[in-house]
Design a protein around this nucleic acid. Structure first.
Length: 704
DNA sequence: GCGATCAGCT
DNA sequence: CACAGCTGATCGC
């Protein structure tokens, strides 16, 4: 395969070099700000080709109106806030550029939000093979949908367990461990209710259900007792069972000795645990976490049926990144939000086979199964995307969209689950940083359709970090899936003929900034601000400029600063090794130096800039050589949400930090434009950072 | 002992 | 909170 490495920076491709060669006209610095309107038409008509929905009938109206969160109330109309008084360090020179940027963004922010109420796409979880047609459930009640999904989960679970038909179903009481196989359902119910009463569990907790066979047992809901046979635990207290379930059996003795019963357990605090002898941090935290879960369970008012019919189908249709199993929160689940406590047979079956070490490694950690989220499975294939945290043996094709920790987490040197597919740049980094042998890596070319196990696969530059790709899957079932990974929409994407022609069925979308209040400026404008700031202060040789960067990402900021100012930037040797993987041309590489004395512009990790303590340490290191530090922290979070202002300027003594809204993810406006361009039948958000309800609401607003 | 993992933090 | 990732503690082979 002939890789056509094309860095996102587009510095290594003459055909796209215009991307970097911004006209830095001093008189026209901020013309590049996007149109101040959220309505789709202005920018679309001025900058982009007409975005024709190619699949208009696929969009279905919402069955239930969704609430829309209040939009930015208009007070965030200043991009930079003076976080602390300017102590006067001769910085007047850089203020004008700062003010100018500020004013420009004011006009940018005071736009009229013109959002139409939700229009929700259905995104019913489909079977991997794609033969579960969503049309079939069109007329179903929400409960029917739920039941159907449950049935599918059950079947799946049985398969996963390597179900043995000869295997006799033995049903134990999860409380006392008695064999209840011979009892009728009613008798089992009575039995467990009695057990339940005997440990004084509140009634609302008992509302959860277990789908073990035909029998529903409430017991494990509150004590988390294991679902495997527990014949040796007949005489064991609920507290001990609870500890064992947490994998902390070695502390049983302490709890027994201290006579901590179920009631007392609920009230334990960290200092109590320390005082009774649980001095190791990890187990103590684990116990405290489990206790807080337990308290949540006990205080929650559970209305299982109401919750099931109200929330589950909605979330399913909207395609959040949750599995069906997420809707049935077991006692230990972190995100138990449905209020129901049914444990699915998937979880049970896997628990039953957890003695097999390989399966244990694949599916479990501390007794918890890591569910494969919707966003990393490609419907119609067995492929996984960025799902290395959920390694399974049922897949041998693993795609990696880009080399950021939250996407490759779980990928280690010992990976043996098949082939990793990624861009050339990502491949180099995976090899360099993780040590994956090249034999296990398949480099994907850009813009070139290739066939992998019967599915056509085409990649495009994601305009995120170097090597980041968007992947188009065309499985044999005729339902193409576009996975954006992390991406920032740009007009070049609308010019991709394959995307124009291919009717996307499922869009797995980077929804990091899927909220109307995230509508940051174009990257060029921010870079220009940084350049202007440095230019303005450059007369002072005792000023050190710091530019924040991730392992990869944000390179455009310091590369363009160097090119424009024709000054070298200092990077560490480790950083240079990474930069060498990114496909820069020699003329760009010349701007990097390993000699810190050669430059007063240093590239540092973002986390160095994030804290004044660390900046102070840098300042101390350079005492004598530099008397002022100006640091730039480029992050999209500095624009909007939850902050009093939409960007900040901080100062402490001779250290100044600018948080500049430089984002490598799409803004809300860009997401809307992209969704309009793609017009998918389904959307699956890959980021769920505002809670499911809010997220669904936001995703539905993309269609407004 | 070392790699993997997780919580906590920014 | 998150972005993305560092640190330090613990787990597990």
């Amino acid at each position: 395969m002939a890789p056509t490495s094309k860095s996102k920076l587009k510095t290594n491709s003459s055909s796209s070099s215009h991307f970097l060669n911004i006209a830095f006209d001093d008189d026209d610095d901020f013309q590049d700000y996007p149109s101040p309107s959220l309505s789709a038409t202005p920018r679309t008509s001025s900058l982009l080709p007409p975005l024709k929905p190619r699949n208009p009938t696929a969009i279905r109206p919402s069955k239930t109106p969704k609430k829309r969160k209040p939009v930015n109330p208009g007070k965030e109309n200043c991009i930079f806030e003076e976080a602390e008084p300017d102590l006067g360090c001769g910085l007047d020179s850089i203020e004008p550029a700062f003010d100018l940027l500020n004013k420009k963004v004011v006009s940018h922010c005071t736009r009229t939000d013109n959002l139409v109420e939700s229009q929700i796409l259905e995104s019913i979880a489909e079977e991997d093979e794609g033969n579960c047609d969503e049309e079939g459930s069109e007329g179903s009640s929400q409960l029917d949908v739920l039941l159907k999904l449950c049935a599918e989960v059950d079947e799946h679970g049985a398969d996963d367990a390597g179900n043995d038909p000869k295997c006799e179903v033995v049903i134990y009481c999860p409380l006392c461990g008695d064999d209840m196989s011979e009892l009728s359902d009613d008798r089992r119910q009575i039995h467990t209710n009695e057990c339940l009463d005997s440990v004084e569990a509140p009634a609302d907790v008992a509302a959860g259900n277990d789908d073990r066979g035909a029998y529903q047992c409430p017991g494990h809901v509150f004590d988390g007792s294991p679902l495997k046979p527990v014949t040796n635990e007949v005489d064991v207290s609920p507290v001990v069972k609870w500890l064992r379930n947490l994998g902390l059996e070695k502390y049983e003795e302490i709890f027994v000795r201290q006579e901590i019963d179920w009631d007392a357990l609920q009230w334990l605090k960290e200092e109590d645990l320390c005082s009774i002898g649980i001095t190791t941090l990890g187990p103590r935290k684990k116990i405290l976490h489990a206790l807080s879960e337990l308290r949540n369970e006990l205080t929650r008012t559970v209305e299982p049926e109401t919750n099931v019919s109200r929330s589950v189908p909605d979330e399913t249709k909207l395609g959040t990144n949750k599995l069906i199993t997420d809707y049935f929160a077991g006692p230990q689940r972190k995100r138990g939000n449905s209020g129901t406590n049914v444990r699915t047979s998937v979880q049970r079956s896997k628990a039953d086979t957890s003695h097999r070490s390989m399966e244990k490694k694949d599916h479990f950690r501390n007794g918890k199964q890591k569910d494969v989220p919707l966003w990393c499975s490609i419907p119609g294939t067995s492929f996984r995307v960025d799902g290395f945290k959920y390694l399974r043996r049922d897949c041998s094709h693993w795609f990696l969209t880009h080399f950021h920790l939250d996407h490759y987490q779980g990928l280690t040197r010992s990976f043996s689950h098949g082939t990793i597919y990624c861009s050339l740049i990502t491949a180099k980094l995976v090899n360099l940083k993780i040590g994956i042998p090249w034999d296990n890596i398949q480099v994907l070319p850009l813009h070139q359709k290739i066939n992998i196990a019967g599915t056509n696969v085409t990649c495009f530059d994601a305009n995120h970090c170097p090597g980041a790709i968007i992947i188009l899957f065309e499985p044999p079932n005729g339902k193409p899936v576009l996975h954006t990974g992390d991406f920032r929409f740009c007009e070049e994407m609308t010019e991709l003929s394959i995307l124009q022609a291919c009717p996307i069925h499922t869009l797995i979308l980077d929804t990091t900034y899927c909220n109307p209040q995230y509508d940051f400026p174009k990257q060029e404008s921010i870079i220009q601000f940084v350049i202007d700031s440095i230019k303005a202060e450059a007369f002072n040789p005792k000023t050190l400029f710091l530019i924040g960067s991730y392992t990869i990402g944000k390179e455009r900021v310091f590369v363009e600063v160097a090119r424009e100012l024709r000054k070298k930037v200092y990077v560490t040797a480790a950083k240079l090794r990474i930069l060498e993987c990114l496909g820069f041309k020699q003329e760009d590489m010349q701007w990097f130096t390993l000699n810190e004395h050669e430059s007063h512009i240093h590239v540092v990790p973002m986390w160095t800039i994030a804290s004044f303590k660390r900046l102070q340490h840098v300042s101390n290191t350079y005492k004598g050589r530099f008397s002022l530090i100006v640091a730039f922290s480029p992050t999209g979070w500095s624009f909007g949400k939850g902050k009093k202002s939409t960007g900040r300027r901080w100062q402490k003594g001779t250290i100044i930090r600018y948080e500049v809204p430089y984002s490598e993810h799409s803004s809300f406006t860009e997401l809307k434009e992209f969704v309009k361009f793609i017009s998918p039948a389904n959307i699956i958000p890959s980021v769920n950072n505002h809670g499911p309800d809010s997220q669904n609401s936001m995703v539905s607003q993309l269609l407004a």
